[in-house]
Structures are given as C-alpha cells and as structure tokens.
C-alpha cells in the first residue's frame, strides 16, 4: 500500500466566557488591588475566587469579603516543557513557576504564578504575598504574581 494520507484541520473556534456575577466582582476587585472572597456563614467557609456555591454545603455563598493579600504556599511547580496556550494559540513562555496559595483567613487555595523561578528556593509552608501590577484593568493579569516573604 502507498503511504496513508492524513488531512490537517485547524478549526478556529472563538469563545467568550462569562465571568458571571461573582467572577465580575473578583476581577473588578483585582482592578482595585484587592483580593475578594465569598463567605458561607453556615459552614463556615471563605473561598477565593468568590463563587456562588459553597464547597461544603453547596448552598449559596451570600457574603463577599476582602482578604489580606498574603498567604501560605501549599504546593508549587516549575513548568519547563513547551505547549500551545489554548488562549493564544502560540507556545506559552517557559519556564514559569506557579503554586497553590492559601490566603490568610480562607479555607482553600488559589492557583497563580510565583516570582521565583528556582523551585529549590521554594518550600511548602512558605509565606508569600500578592504583587499587583501598577496599571490595572480589572482582569486576572492585574495580579502579577506571588512573592516570597521570607
């Protein structure tokens, strides 16, 4: 048999994702340099990013509160392999570090970039703080990264 044929297809699909009510609040909060969380008084749970459904009772999180822009690093990784970013369609710049940060006064973790690029200088349990961009637009990128406090 002669060589099998493969047909290349690169369908271009565009999406516009609704941030929703709680997400819009959170992004506007970032624009003001603030970290907002949702609170469920029953459980009690305080969660970042804020969202409608509590992770414990699955009921409505009624209250929006501001939490300090500091927390604890509970896990981290240095991403070193190349792949296409689904947002841009081009390779995401590597290497980069991100981690799971538990903000003070919250019950879950928030996944975001770390300024440190050497994982040997990071440790689980380390204190970190959020660094905001000087120019903010009410989008996730307003939060630049987390920086080690120790």
């Amino acid at each position: 048999m002669s060589e099998p044929i493969a047909v290349r297809a690169t369908p271009e699909l565009h999406f516009r994702y609704a941030a929703g009510r709680y997400g819009s609040l959170f992004l506007r909060g970032l624009g003001e340099g603030r970290i907002l969380a949702s609170r469920c008084a029953r459980c009690p749970r305080t969660l970042v990013p804020p969202r409608v459904a509590c992770t414990h009772c699955f009921g409505k999180m009624e209250e929006i509160v501001e939490v300090p822009p500091r927390g604890t690093l509970l896990a981290f990784t240095l991403v070193a392999f190349p792949f296409l970013d689904p947002f841009t369609g081009v390779q995401r710049p590597i290497p980069y570090c991100y981690g799971m940060v538990q903000f003070e006064g919250t019950d879950n973790t928030f996944q975001y970039f770390l300024s440190e690029k050497d994982p040997s200088k990071l440790r689980v349990g380390q204190r970190v703080e959020a660094v905001f961009n000087e120019v903010r637009k009410g989008e996730l990128g307003d939060l630049l990264h987390f920086r080690a406090l120790e």
Binding site: V79, F83, P86, Y98, F113
Partner: peptide, 14 residues
C-alpha cells in the same frame, strides 16, 4: 476555569 486556572495550568502534567 477559563478565567482563573487556565493561565497557570500546564495540563495533567502540572
């Protein structure tokens, strides 16, 4: 999550 988690996540590997 398209807004919060995709920018950092590197698939199942990370």
């Amino acid at each position: 999550d398209p807004i919060y988690e995709r920018p950092t996540l590197a698939g199942a590997v990370s």
